[in-house]
Amino acid sequence: MTLPGGNPEMNAPSAAAPDEVVWEPVVDDPAVVAPVFDELTRQRTKEIISRYPQPRSALLPLLHLVQSVEGFVSQDGIRYCAEALELTTAEVSAVATFYTMYKRTPCGQHLVSVCTNTLCATLGGDDIYGRLKEKLGVGHEETAGEPGTVGSITLEHAECLAACDLAPVLQVNYEFFDNQTVESAEALVDALQAGEKPNPTRGAPLTDFRTVEMELAGVFPDLARSVEGPSVADETLRGARLAADRGWRAPSMPDSPPDLPALPEKK
């Protein structure tokens, strides 16, 4: 079908069409990327990509890696991932902006996430978040203090953190602080601001936001040590303990695995 008078583009203001379009780089000085993402990061990038059958699967871990270097995901970080995976920056940006854990502005030394989903909120999560907002003078995904400096804190309200039996909960750098109160949360934030690192209820000893982002990328500085961090709360074990106390158990298994069933006759 022919449109009247040709096609819509013909009505557009005429522009000199070069034979070959050369896109200007988004960042004026390409060299700024290099020092931030050093040789070690590039090496880790290669290792992460090599874990997957297809390179693009490494994008989520690589964005975590970028956050571990930059403290957030900058345009440089987007471009770094795009280059590493031979994607466009648009493709990487689309992913980086979709997920809540990728932060687009510089984060504090610590990220404090308060669960304000229904159950935690009912048991005090809203009060905790409200008090911390007031105390730190910031809102959702805002940072108190100079980002990256000791004691700086980025605050956010989080969706259900899957620790409902321990409600209300909050996380610092994704380590769990269970059964919180307004007072305990305030004391925790005071300690963080003073440069201390209180131990989480469940999780490894506190480090900082950048270090845990590296772990999320799959690069563990000291897994043998961090894996030892406690994980069980009384709540976790209640059912198992109650069963042990009362002598309740699952039916006994046979001494050796029974024969696998025969296959039904094929038609």
């Binding site: 975590h64 997920y99 854990m101 996430s113 989080a158 953190l161 899957a162 996380q171 750098n173 994704y174 380590e175 769990f176 469940r202 999780g203 490894a204 845990v212 772990e215 999320l216 799959g218 563990f220 897994l223 043998a224 961090s226 894996v227 961090g229 994980s231």
Partner: peptide, 12 residues
């Protein structure tokens, strides 16, 4: 992602 300690345990 928020289940960082699980990630450590499973990876380990």
């Amino acid at each position: 992602g928020e289940a960082l300690h699980c990630i450590r345990r499973v990876r380990h």
